[in-house]
Design a protein around this nucleic acid. Structure first.
Lengths: 189, 189
DNA sequence: GCGACATTGTACCGAACGGTACAATAAGTC
DNA sequence: GACTTATTGTACCGTTCGGTACAATGTCGC
Protein backbone atom coordinates (compact mmCIF):
# COMPACT_ATOMS: atom_id res chain seq x y z
CA UNK A 1 0.00 0.00 0.00
CA UNK A 2 2.45 2.57 1.19
CA UNK A 3 5.14 1.37 -1.13
CA UNK A 4 4.35 4.24 -3.44
CA UNK A 5 6.11 6.38 -0.85
CA UNK A 6 9.67 5.69 -1.99
CA UNK A 7 8.58 5.97 -5.62
CA UNK A 8 6.80 9.18 -4.84
CA UNK A 9 10.03 10.80 -3.75
CA UNK A 10 11.64 9.96 -7.08
CA UNK A 11 8.57 11.15 -8.92
CA UNK A 12 8.59 14.45 -7.07
CA UNK A 13 12.30 14.86 -7.77
CA UNK A 14 11.70 14.52 -11.49
CA UNK A 15 8.77 16.91 -11.47
CA UNK A 16 10.82 19.34 -9.40
CA UNK A 17 13.49 19.35 -12.08
CA UNK A 18 10.92 20.28 -14.72
CA UNK A 19 9.61 23.15 -12.59
CA UNK A 20 13.16 24.22 -11.87
CA UNK A 21 14.08 24.40 -15.54
CA UNK A 22 10.90 25.90 -16.94
CA UNK A 23 9.25 27.74 -14.07
CA UNK A 24 5.67 27.17 -12.97
CA UNK A 25 4.03 28.52 -16.11
CA UNK A 26 6.57 27.00 -18.44
CA UNK A 27 6.33 23.51 -16.95
CA UNK A 28 3.54 22.10 -19.08
CA UNK A 29 1.84 18.82 -18.34
CA UNK A 30 3.32 17.57 -21.59
CA UNK A 31 6.84 18.29 -20.32
CA UNK A 32 6.09 16.75 -16.96
CA UNK A 33 4.61 13.71 -18.65
CA UNK A 34 7.60 13.31 -20.91
CA UNK A 35 10.06 13.69 -18.02
CA UNK A 36 8.28 11.25 -15.76
CA UNK A 37 7.07 8.81 -18.38
CA UNK A 38 3.56 9.15 -17.00
CA UNK A 39 0.47 10.03 -18.95
CA UNK A 40 -2.14 12.45 -17.78
CA UNK A 41 -4.18 9.58 -16.39
CA UNK A 42 -1.39 8.69 -13.99
CA UNK A 43 -0.46 12.26 -13.14
CA UNK A 44 -4.04 13.14 -12.26
CA UNK A 45 -4.33 9.92 -10.32
CA UNK A 46 -1.42 10.93 -8.08
CA UNK A 47 -2.25 14.62 -8.05
CA UNK A 48 -6.02 14.95 -8.43
CA UNK A 49 -5.88 18.74 -8.26
CA UNK A 50 -3.46 18.90 -11.15
CA UNK A 51 -0.47 21.11 -11.70
CA UNK A 52 -0.93 23.28 -8.66
CA UNK A 53 -0.99 20.24 -6.41
CA UNK A 54 2.14 18.93 -8.11
CA UNK A 55 3.95 22.19 -7.44
CA UNK A 56 2.74 22.26 -3.88
CA UNK A 57 3.91 18.70 -3.32
CA UNK A 58 7.27 19.51 -4.91
CA UNK A 59 7.74 22.53 -2.65
CA UNK A 60 6.79 20.45 0.38
CA UNK A 61 9.25 17.80 -0.67
CA UNK A 62 12.09 20.30 -1.05
CA UNK A 63 11.10 21.93 2.21
CA UNK A 64 11.23 18.55 3.89
CA UNK A 65 14.68 17.86 2.49
CA UNK A 66 15.96 21.15 3.84
CA UNK A 67 14.26 20.54 7.14
CA UNK A 68 16.07 17.22 7.50
CA UNK A 69 19.40 18.13 5.97
CA UNK A 70 19.83 21.81 6.74
CA UNK A 71 17.47 23.23 9.33
CA UNK A 72 17.47 20.33 11.79
CA UNK A 73 21.29 20.05 11.85
CA UNK A 74 21.47 23.80 12.45
CA UNK A 75 19.09 23.50 15.35
CA UNK A 76 20.02 20.16 16.85
CA UNK A 77 23.77 20.01 16.63
CA UNK A 78 25.12 20.92 20.06
CA UNK A 79 28.10 22.43 18.28
CA UNK A 80 26.65 25.35 16.32
CA UNK A 81 29.77 25.69 14.20
CA UNK A 82 29.43 22.08 13.10
CA UNK A 83 25.78 22.67 12.25
CA UNK A 84 26.67 25.67 10.12
CA UNK A 85 29.44 23.72 8.45
CA UNK A 86 26.89 21.04 7.67
CA UNK A 87 24.55 23.64 6.20
CA UNK A 88 27.17 24.98 3.84
CA UNK A 89 28.13 21.52 2.67
CA UNK A 90 24.51 20.44 2.20
CA UNK A 91 23.74 23.63 0.31
CA UNK A 92 26.69 23.16 -2.00
CA UNK A 93 25.64 19.60 -2.59
CA UNK A 94 21.96 20.37 -3.13
CA UNK A 95 22.54 23.13 -5.65
CA UNK A 96 25.21 21.02 -7.31
CA UNK A 97 27.77 23.78 -6.87
CA UNK A 98 25.62 26.22 -8.79
CA UNK A 99 24.42 23.99 -11.61
CA UNK A 100 21.00 23.85 -10.06
CA UNK A 101 18.74 26.75 -9.37
CA UNK A 102 16.54 27.24 -6.30
CA UNK A 103 13.02 26.34 -7.39
CA UNK A 104 11.47 28.11 -4.43
CA UNK A 105 13.53 31.22 -5.10
CA UNK A 106 12.48 31.17 -8.74
CA UNK A 107 8.83 30.79 -7.75
CA UNK A 108 9.23 33.75 -5.41
CA UNK A 109 10.09 36.05 -8.29
CA UNK A 110 7.10 35.78 -10.59
CA UNK A 111 3.34 35.69 -10.29
CA UNK A 112 3.37 32.10 -9.05
CA UNK A 113 4.55 33.47 -5.72
CA UNK A 114 0.98 34.45 -4.96
CA UNK A 115 -0.15 30.85 -5.29
CA UNK A 116 2.49 29.51 -2.94
CA UNK A 117 3.18 32.56 -0.81
CA UNK A 118 2.92 30.91 2.58
CA UNK A 119 5.05 27.92 1.63
CA UNK A 120 7.72 30.18 0.15
CA UNK A 121 7.73 32.56 3.09
CA UNK A 122 7.90 29.65 5.48
CA UNK A 123 10.84 28.01 3.73
CA UNK A 124 13.04 31.08 3.70
CA UNK A 125 11.84 32.22 7.09
CA UNK A 126 12.85 28.96 8.73
CA UNK A 127 16.20 28.94 6.96
CA UNK A 128 17.05 32.40 8.23
CA UNK A 129 15.68 31.73 11.71
CA UNK A 130 17.56 28.48 12.23
CA UNK A 131 20.79 29.93 10.91
CA UNK A 132 20.39 32.99 13.12
CA UNK A 133 19.83 30.72 16.09
CA UNK A 134 22.98 28.74 15.39
CA UNK A 135 24.99 31.92 14.88
CA UNK A 136 23.73 33.30 18.16
CA UNK A 137 24.73 30.12 19.93
CA UNK A 138 28.12 30.38 18.23
CA UNK A 139 28.68 33.68 19.97
CA UNK A 140 27.24 36.37 17.74
CA UNK A 141 25.08 39.02 19.30
CA UNK A 142 21.41 38.30 18.54
CA UNK A 143 20.82 41.30 16.25
CA UNK A 144 24.06 40.67 14.40
CA UNK A 145 23.23 36.96 14.09
CA UNK A 146 19.89 37.78 12.47
CA UNK A 147 21.45 40.12 9.96
CA UNK A 148 24.25 37.72 9.14
CA UNK A 149 21.76 34.89 8.64
CA UNK A 150 19.62 36.97 6.31
CA UNK A 151 22.70 38.13 4.44
CA UNK A 152 23.89 34.55 4.04
CA UNK A 153 20.64 33.16 2.66
CA UNK A 154 20.31 36.13 0.31
CA UNK A 155 23.90 35.70 -0.83
CA UNK A 156 23.21 32.08 -1.73
CA UNK A 157 20.14 33.04 -3.75
CA UNK A 158 21.99 35.85 -5.47
CA UNK A 159 24.92 33.61 -6.26
CA UNK A 160 22.61 31.09 -7.90
CA UNK A 161 21.10 33.82 -10.05
CA UNK A 162 24.45 35.29 -10.97
CA UNK A 163 26.07 31.92 -11.63
CA UNK A 164 23.33 31.06 -14.09
CA UNK A 165 23.31 34.50 -15.63
CA UNK A 166 27.06 34.47 -16.17
CA UNK A 167 27.05 30.76 -16.97
CA UNK A 168 29.97 30.49 -14.59
CA UNK A 169 29.85 27.98 -11.75
CA UNK A 170 32.82 29.57 -10.04
CA UNK A 171 30.56 32.44 -8.98
CA UNK A 172 28.76 30.03 -6.67
CA UNK A 173 31.84 28.39 -5.21
CA UNK A 174 33.51 31.74 -4.65
CA UNK A 175 30.38 32.91 -2.82
CA UNK A 176 30.36 29.84 -0.60
CA UNK A 177 34.03 30.38 0.20
CA UNK A 178 33.37 33.98 1.23
CA UNK A 179 30.34 32.96 3.28
CA UNK A 180 32.35 30.27 5.01
CA UNK A 181 34.84 32.88 6.09
CA UNK A 182 32.20 35.31 7.24
CA UNK A 183 30.39 32.60 9.18
CA UNK A 184 33.56 31.82 11.09
CA UNK A 185 34.30 28.47 9.49
CA UNK A 186 37.76 27.21 8.61
CA UNK A 187 38.79 28.03 5.04
CA UNK A 188 39.03 24.38 3.99
CA UNK A 189 37.34 21.23 5.14
CA UNK B 1 -7.11 60.61 -29.48
CA UNK B 2 -5.84 59.60 -26.10
CA UNK B 3 -2.86 57.37 -26.35
CA UNK B 4 -1.99 55.11 -23.51
CA UNK B 5 1.62 54.62 -24.55
CA UNK B 6 2.73 57.74 -26.42
CA UNK B 7 6.36 56.84 -26.85
CA UNK B 8 8.41 53.75 -27.15
CA UNK B 9 10.14 54.18 -23.80
CA UNK B 10 6.86 54.26 -21.94
CA UNK B 11 5.58 51.35 -23.98
CA UNK B 12 8.64 49.29 -23.14
CA UNK B 13 8.32 50.22 -19.49
CA UNK B 14 4.77 48.90 -19.41
CA UNK B 15 5.69 45.69 -21.21
CA UNK B 16 8.67 45.29 -18.88
CA UNK B 17 6.33 45.41 -15.91
CA UNK B 18 4.25 42.58 -17.37
CA UNK B 19 7.34 40.44 -17.94
CA UNK B 20 8.56 41.28 -14.46
CA UNK B 21 5.34 40.17 -12.83
CA UNK B 22 4.57 37.10 -14.89
CA UNK B 23 7.89 35.92 -16.30
CA UNK B 24 8.52 35.32 -19.98
CA UNK B 25 6.18 32.36 -20.37
CA UNK B 26 3.52 33.82 -18.12
CA UNK B 27 3.41 37.17 -19.91
CA UNK B 28 0.79 36.41 -22.53
CA UNK B 29 0.01 38.71 -25.42
CA UNK B 30 -3.42 39.17 -23.88
CA UNK B 31 -1.85 40.49 -20.67
CA UNK B 32 0.55 42.71 -22.58
CA UNK B 33 -2.30 43.98 -24.69
CA UNK B 34 -4.43 44.73 -21.64
CA UNK B 35 -1.57 46.52 -19.86
CA UNK B 36 -0.60 48.65 -22.83
CA UNK B 37 -4.04 49.19 -24.27
CA UNK B 38 -2.77 47.95 -27.62
CA UNK B 39 -4.27 45.21 -29.72
CA UNK B 40 -2.30 42.55 -31.48
CA UNK B 41 -2.30 44.63 -34.64
CA UNK B 42 -0.38 47.41 -32.91
CA UNK B 43 1.89 45.12 -30.95
CA UNK B 44 2.94 43.25 -34.06
CA UNK B 45 3.35 46.53 -35.86
CA UNK B 46 5.91 47.71 -33.32
CA UNK B 47 7.46 44.30 -32.74
CA UNK B 48 7.12 42.31 -35.97
CA UNK B 49 8.86 39.28 -34.51
CA UNK B 50 6.39 39.07 -31.67
CA UNK B 51 6.93 38.26 -28.04
CA UNK B 52 10.59 37.40 -28.28
CA UNK B 53 11.35 40.74 -29.89
CA UNK B 54 9.36 42.48 -27.18
CA UNK B 55 11.40 40.78 -24.48
CA UNK B 56 14.64 41.53 -26.28
CA UNK B 57 13.69 45.19 -26.63
CA UNK B 58 12.70 45.33 -22.97
CA UNK B 59 16.03 43.86 -21.89
CA UNK B 60 17.88 46.31 -24.13
CA UNK B 61 15.90 49.13 -22.64
CA UNK B 62 16.70 48.10 -19.09
CA UNK B 63 20.31 47.54 -20.04
CA UNK B 64 20.43 51.03 -21.48
CA UNK B 65 18.97 52.53 -18.35
CA UNK B 66 21.61 50.83 -16.23
CA UNK B 67 24.30 51.85 -18.68
CA UNK B 68 23.30 55.50 -18.31
CA UNK B 69 22.38 55.57 -14.64
CA UNK B 70 24.64 52.98 -13.07
CA UNK B 71 27.51 51.77 -15.20
CA UNK B 72 28.54 55.08 -16.74
CA UNK B 73 28.60 56.94 -13.41
CA UNK B 74 30.69 54.12 -11.97
CA UNK B 75 33.14 54.45 -14.81
CA UNK B 76 33.13 58.16 -15.50
CA UNK B 77 32.97 59.77 -12.11
CA UNK B 78 36.49 60.83 -11.22
CA UNK B 79 35.60 60.18 -7.59
CA UNK B 80 35.00 56.42 -7.46
CA UNK B 81 33.32 56.65 -4.08
CA UNK B 82 30.80 59.11 -5.49
CA UNK B 83 30.17 56.77 -8.43
CA UNK B 84 29.53 53.88 -6.08
CA UNK B 85 27.27 56.04 -3.96
CA UNK B 86 25.37 56.91 -7.11
CA UNK B 87 25.04 53.23 -8.00
CA UNK B 88 23.56 52.33 -4.64
CA UNK B 89 21.06 55.17 -4.81
CA UNK B 90 20.07 54.39 -8.40
CA UNK B 91 19.68 50.72 -7.54
CA UNK B 92 17.47 51.49 -4.57
CA UNK B 93 15.42 53.79 -6.73
CA UNK B 94 15.14 51.42 -9.69
CA UNK B 95 14.03 48.44 -7.64
CA UNK B 96 11.72 50.70 -5.66
CA UNK B 97 13.33 49.64 -2.40
CA UNK B 98 12.56 46.01 -3.06
CA UNK B 99 9.03 46.31 -4.43
CA UNK B 100 10.28 45.57 -7.88
CA UNK B 101 12.05 42.45 -9.01
CA UNK B 102 14.96 42.26 -11.44
CA UNK B 103 13.51 41.14 -14.75
CA UNK B 104 16.88 40.10 -16.10
CA UNK B 105 17.64 38.15 -12.95
CA UNK B 106 14.28 36.41 -13.20
CA UNK B 107 14.89 35.56 -16.84
CA UNK B 108 18.27 34.13 -15.86
CA UNK B 109 16.64 31.51 -13.67
CA UNK B 110 14.35 29.65 -16.00
CA UNK B 111 14.46 28.25 -19.51
CA UNK B 112 14.09 31.70 -21.05
CA UNK B 113 17.71 32.29 -20.15
CA UNK B 114 18.70 30.27 -23.21
CA UNK B 115 16.86 32.68 -25.48
CA UNK B 116 18.52 35.77 -24.04
CA UNK B 117 21.76 34.30 -22.72
CA UNK B 118 24.15 36.81 -24.23
CA UNK B 119 22.10 39.84 -23.21
CA UNK B 120 21.79 38.51 -19.66
CA UNK B 121 25.46 37.64 -19.37
CA UNK B 122 26.41 41.00 -20.76
CA UNK B 123 24.23 42.95 -18.34
CA UNK B 124 25.56 41.31 -15.22
CA UNK B 125 29.08 41.12 -16.56
CA UNK B 126 29.23 44.84 -17.16
CA UNK B 127 27.71 45.61 -13.80
CA UNK B 128 30.34 43.57 -11.99
CA UNK B 129 33.18 44.84 -14.18
CA UNK B 130 32.35 48.50 -13.76
CA UNK B 131 31.83 48.18 -10.04
CA UNK B 132 35.11 46.29 -9.70
CA UNK B 133 36.85 49.03 -11.63
CA UNK B 134 35.49 51.72 -9.36
CA UNK B 135 36.40 49.74 -6.26
CA UNK B 136 39.94 49.28 -7.54
CA UNK B 137 40.23 52.99 -8.17
CA UNK B 138 38.89 53.55 -4.67
CA UNK B 139 41.86 51.71 -3.29
CA UNK B 140 40.91 48.04 -3.14
CA UNK B 141 43.40 45.52 -4.42
CA UNK B 142 42.30 44.30 -7.88
CA UNK B 143 41.46 40.72 -6.86
CA UNK B 144 39.61 41.90 -3.80
CA UNK B 145 37.74 44.52 -5.84
CA UNK B 146 36.51 41.85 -8.25
CA UNK B 147 35.26 39.63 -5.46
CA UNK B 148 33.58 42.50 -3.66
CA UNK B 149 31.88 43.61 -6.86
CA UNK B 150 30.58 40.14 -7.57
CA UNK B 151 29.46 39.79 -3.98
CA UNK B 152 27.64 43.09 -4.13
CA UNK B 153 25.71 42.37 -7.32
CA UNK B 154 24.81 38.90 -6.08
CA UNK B 155 23.69 40.34 -2.74
CA UNK B 156 21.34 42.73 -4.51
CA UNK B 157 19.83 39.91 -6.55
CA UNK B 158 19.50 37.71 -3.49
CA UNK B 159 17.93 40.52 -1.49
CA UNK B 160 15.31 41.02 -4.20
CA UNK B 161 14.48 37.33 -4.13
CA UNK B 162 14.35 37.18 -0.36
CA UNK B 163 12.38 40.40 0.00
CA UNK B 164 9.71 39.08 -2.32
CA UNK B 165 9.75 35.64 -0.75
CA UNK B 166 9.36 37.03 2.74
CA UNK B 167 7.08 39.81 1.53
CA UNK B 168 9.23 42.14 3.60
CA UNK B 169 10.74 45.21 1.99
CA UNK B 170 13.05 45.75 4.93
CA UNK B 171 15.13 42.84 3.72
CA UNK B 172 16.17 44.93 0.76
CA UNK B 173 16.91 48.12 2.65
CA UNK B 174 18.86 46.24 5.30
CA UNK B 175 20.91 44.64 2.53
CA UNK B 176 21.66 47.99 0.93
CA UNK B 177 22.71 49.37 4.29
CA UNK B 178 25.12 46.49 4.82
CA UNK B 179 26.47 46.84 1.29
CA UNK B 180 26.97 50.54 1.78
CA UNK B 181 29.11 49.80 4.77
CA UNK B 182 31.11 47.11 3.05
CA UNK B 183 31.69 49.32 0.03
CA UNK B 184 33.18 51.99 2.24
CA UNK B 185 30.34 54.48 1.99
CA UNK B 186 29.12 56.67 4.86
CA UNK B 187 26.22 55.15 6.79
CA UNK B 188 23.80 57.90 5.84
CA UNK B 189 23.51 60.22 2.92
C1' DG C 1 -10.63 -18.22 -9.11
C1' DC C 2 -12.87 -13.82 -7.20
C1' DG C 3 -13.80 -8.86 -6.06
C1' DA C 4 -11.62 -4.42 -4.78
C1' DC C 5 -8.79 -1.12 -5.71
C1' DA C 6 -4.63 1.02 -7.97
C1' DT C 7 -2.82 2.49 -12.16
C1' DT C 8 -2.81 3.63 -16.92
C1' DG C 9 -3.91 5.01 -22.02
C1' DT C 10 -6.70 7.52 -24.81
C1' DA C 11 -10.01 10.33 -26.61
C1' DC C 12 -11.84 14.49 -25.84
C1' DC C 13 -13.15 19.35 -24.00
C1' DG C 14 -13.26 24.50 -24.07
C1' DA C 15 -10.09 28.05 -23.48
C1' DA C 16 -6.04 30.29 -24.25
C1' DC C 17 -1.76 30.44 -26.62
C1' DG C 18 1.41 32.99 -30.24
C1' DG C 19 0.95 34.46 -34.63
C1' DT C 20 -1.07 35.99 -39.40
C1' DA C 21 -3.91 38.52 -42.79
C1' DC C 22 -5.92 42.40 -44.11
C1' DA C 23 -9.07 45.98 -44.52
C1' DA C 24 -10.20 50.29 -42.14
C1' DT C 25 -8.68 54.34 -40.27
C1' DA C 26 -5.46 58.06 -38.73
C1' DA C 27 -1.78 61.20 -39.60
C1' DG C 28 1.59 63.58 -42.23
C1' DT C 29 3.32 65.58 -46.48
C1' DC C 30 2.96 67.87 -50.87
C1' DG D 1 -7.55 68.19 -52.09
C1' DA D 2 -4.63 63.60 -52.99
C1' DC D 3 -0.99 60.48 -52.00
C1' DT D 4 1.73 57.94 -48.61
C1' DT D 5 2.80 55.91 -44.60
C1' DA D 6 1.63 54.63 -39.64
C1' DT D 7 -1.38 52.66 -36.80
C1' DT D 8 -5.24 49.95 -35.43
C1' DG D 9 -9.33 46.47 -34.95
C1' DT D 10 -10.96 42.19 -36.01
C1' DA D 11 -11.47 37.82 -37.65
C1' DC D 12 -9.06 33.89 -38.05
C1' DC D 13 -5.24 30.11 -38.03
C1' DG D 14 -3.22 25.81 -36.05
C1' DT D 15 -1.37 24.37 -31.74
C1' DT D 16 -1.05 23.72 -27.06
C1' DC D 17 -2.83 24.56 -22.65
C1' DG D 18 -4.82 22.41 -18.13
C1' DG D 19 -8.24 19.42 -17.16
C1' DT D 20 -11.99 15.56 -17.52
C1' DA D 21 -14.16 11.06 -18.50
C1' DC D 22 -13.82 6.51 -18.56
C1' DA D 23 -12.83 2.11 -20.01
C1' DA D 24 -9.00 -1.06 -19.89
C1' DT D 25 -5.45 -3.13 -17.44
C1' DG D 26 -2.57 -4.30 -13.51
C1' DT D 27 -2.13 -5.76 -8.64
C1' DC D 28 -3.40 -7.21 -4.47
C1' DG D 29 -5.78 -9.95 -0.59
C1' DC D 30 -8.76 -13.55 -0.19
Amino acid sequence: MRRIAPDRDQLLAIIAEVFREHGYEGASLALIGAATGLGKGSLYHFFPSGKEEMARAVIDNIDGWFEDNVFAPLHDNPDPQAGIEHMVAATDSYFRSGRRVCLIGAFALDQSRDLFASQIRDYFGRWVAHLADALARAGHRPAEAGELAEETVAAIQGALTLARAADDLDVFSRTLRRLRMRLGLPANI
